[in-house]
Structures are given as C-alpha cells and as structure tokens.
Design a protein around this nucleic acid. Sequence first.
DNA 1: CATAATCCTACTATTCCGATAGGGTAAATG
DNA 2: CATTTACCCTATCGGAATAGTAGGATTATG
Lengths: 135, 135
Amino acid sequence: MLSKKTKYGIKALTFIAKQDKEVKVQIATISKEENISHKFLESILLTLKKAGVLGAKKGKGGGYYLIKEAAQVKMTEVIRTLEGPIAMVPCVSLNFYEKCSDCPDEETCAVHKLMIQVRDNTLHVLRNTTLADLV
Amino acid sequence: MLSKKTKYGIKALTFIAKQDKEVKVQIATISKEENISHKFLESILLTLKKAGVLGAKKGKGGGYYLIKEAAQVKMTEVIRTLEGPIAMVPCVSLNFYEKCSDCPDEETCAVHKLMIQVRDNTLHVLRNTTLADLV
DNA sequence: CATAATCCTACTATTCCGATAGGGTAAATG
DNA sequence: CATTTACCCTATCGGAATAGTAGGATTATG
C-alpha cells in the first residue's frame, strides 16, 4: 500500500507543476485545493526540498517551486524519497538492500525470484514516468 | 512491503510443490525447514486451504497438499489471498476497489493515473507466474 | 481409546502511519 | 526596523495493522 505521505507528495508536485515555472506555490494553497492537512503537507514538502526536487523561498510572496523541469522529475526519485524502497522485499531492493534474516540462500529463494520480476516491471514504469506525464 | 504472512505462504507452497503429488506435508516439517514459526504458519496454511489452493488431511499421516497442478496456481491468487489487494491504492484495485475519501475526481487524479500503470505491470508478472515457475 | 495431526478463537506485544501541537527561524514589505 | 508571512524543526499521540502466542476443539489413524 502506498502511504498517504507519498500520495499527498505526488498530488502536491503535480499541483506545483501545473503552475507557471516562476510561480511560488504556498503550502496553504495546496492544502486547501487538495484536501491535505496543512502541517502534514508541510513536512512532506520539506522532505522533497531536502531531496533536491523542490526549491523554496521564504517570506512574503514565498512558497515552493520546481527546481528542474517537470519532465526531468522521475517517479522513481519521488517515491524513493517519500516511500522508501520500491521493491516489495528488502533483499531485492537496489537502493535499500538488506539481507532477509530468515532466508539462508537468496539464490534458491522463491520469493526472491518472484519479487525481482515484480520490481523490474515496476521500475520500468516509474523510471519512464515523469511529473510532466501526470499533469 | 510484502508481509511476512505472504512471504511465508509462498515459501510453504513451493516447499509443498517440490514433493511428489500425493505426499502430505506437515506444518512441523515446513516450519523446521523454512524457519517459520509453527503457529503462525498454521494460520497461513489454513487460509490457503480455505481459498482452495491447498487441501488438508487431519490425523496421523495427515498434512497439506496441492489441490491443483503447480502450473495452475497463479501468483495473483496466492497474493490476493494472503496479502490482499495487488494495487498500491484502493481506487485502482480490481478485486478490492474502494473510493479514496480525499480525492474528488479519479479521472483527473495523478496518483490514480500512475498507479494504474504500476498495477497493470505487476499484474502481468503475477498472472504469468505460477507455482511451477518458482520451484 | 491413544495419538497425531489439523482446525478454530481469542489475545497480546510491537511497530508504523497519519496527524497534531507548538513553537523557532528567516526573509520580504512598508 | 518592525511586522507580516512563510519556512523549519521537535515532540507527541491515538489507531490500525503485523507478527506471533496460547489453548483448546475436532478429526483421522492404528
């Protein structure tokens, strides 16, 4: 299941991407338009800023804006930042690899084998979808 | 993330599928060989039995066995039974559909659009993978 | 009947998610 | 230079879901 954090993050990003490039979008605006808790959204956008997806300007007339072109923002990046691993099992994760404690041998593990297939297909979609595709 | 329930379930199924068809496999055997808590595994196999994937025989010499051919057991069936929806968001689930409470319009929702893509690709893998492929 | 196995119900400990609260810090405007 | 506006950070908390536990009921075999 996709967490609301990620869900809200994607919604917010598309909302920002719809505006003209130089426009600064405020938290309160997105919060109202997309029915997202103001404070929760605040932390999400902050995370995206730290990840280098968004830029922010403080003070009067400030807000968030895209740093790159929408077509350069891959969904892999967004989801890894907010959700964590894309793989359904740590032992097949590319960016968050962890050995399964219970599994003696990855090579012969049926779950491992299957989840690599799933991961590759999911990655294919997320790598080829950018923010521009969702607007 | 895949729950341990599903993970253990797949491991147990492949273990059973490796045996000769008429052999009854006991919980205790799988539990020992695959490092799975006996009681936990018990509830998992029971669920798979109710779903029509496994058959069971009680009493001495009893145990679990496959009802269909391994090549007839699709991963979609196994995962839907143990994990629930395959989709990452209820509003794109085929078997467990639910409207998102926060989303006013599915048609224009960016998350919806993206997650349909992911779901279709995942489904493609899981529908074309059977227990026989994992043994 | 004794034994060996599955079946069933209920409980618990832990973890994580979604959200809230409350303030602190920085930067534009007048 | 003060005031407004918005970003930044920490801490907390209730509820739901997971993972596992406990104990007994039921059924088949020898």
